[in-house]
Design a protein around this nucleic acid. Sequence first.
DNA 1: CTTGACTCTGGACCCGGGTCCAGAGTTCAG
DNA 2: CTGAACTCTGGACCCGGGTCCAGAGTCAAG
Lengths: 134, 134
Amino acid sequence: MTTLSIGELAERVGVGIDTIRYYERSGLLAPATRLPSGYRRYGAAELRRLLFIRRAKALGFSLPEVQELLELSSRKSVASIKRAAEAKLADIDRRIDELNQIRHGLESLVEACPGHGRAEACPILHALAGEAPR
Amino acid sequence: MTTLSIGELAERVGVGIDTIRYYERSGLLAPATRLPSGYRRYGAAELRRLLFIRRAKALGFSLPEVQELLELSSRKSVASIKRAAEAKLADIDRRIDELNQIRHGLESLVEACPGHGRAEACPILHALAGEAPR
DNA sequence: CTTGACTCTGGACCCGGGTCCAGAGTTCAG
DNA sequence: CTGAACTCTGGACCCGGGTCCAGAGTCAAG
């Protein structure tokens, strides 16, 4: 069997059936070819495309961004693909930097906290402003 | 005036009025003190707390996570505060690791891409298409 | 042929994190 | 005093990215 039902495709890619239909509805996947019964059938190309979508998602691309990538790839514009990847890379770097900043702040608080004694001596508490809601 | 109206507070923190009410509804901010008219008034503690929330959000914490951070101050034991802070630190480290993995994958693709020529020469496309690297 | 598993559709619903609205009351500068 | 600007409430709505449902039709193993 070189074609797959939607359930088989979903299983292979590790995604829900509803997700595939959702991707079709939102234009990420072309409308599937149908059996006379109306059942969708998928071939190798659709499998590759769906895997492409999942991998791009795993790299942090949103669905609209994935769609852009797919369109770019069909236009054979290597330069713009590279630019998109570089922009996403810069995006990830920015997120990492931000996390590192809070990491260092939190780390220095943890290091300065004796771990015992009166609450007033805990610098973690001092760093938190205001009263907790009750 | 040492107290602020909700609009003034919103302006100072750079957030919408509705967001402040939303935070109050969802328990991140204690119910505001009210004027006889029912208008909310805010003091320095609330301002600090709201700034804390925005900073933590800007650093990628979800609202429930921010709430956890804030609730550290209501713990009785300094030791448990420290443990919670350490757990949050480990959490941040895990996130940074994940982002770094994505980052390295993307970076090597970007570096390997010539940035011009035919699509077949673009390793980014090949990687997304699930082809073995050559 | 029967039966259980699969698939179809349109639409509702979920979560997070807000954002906007109408209609009524309040505050304040001039 | 007046009018503009502000604030109140409850509820509706938005986006992203799915997820679930009912009721009807289809497929395939035994």
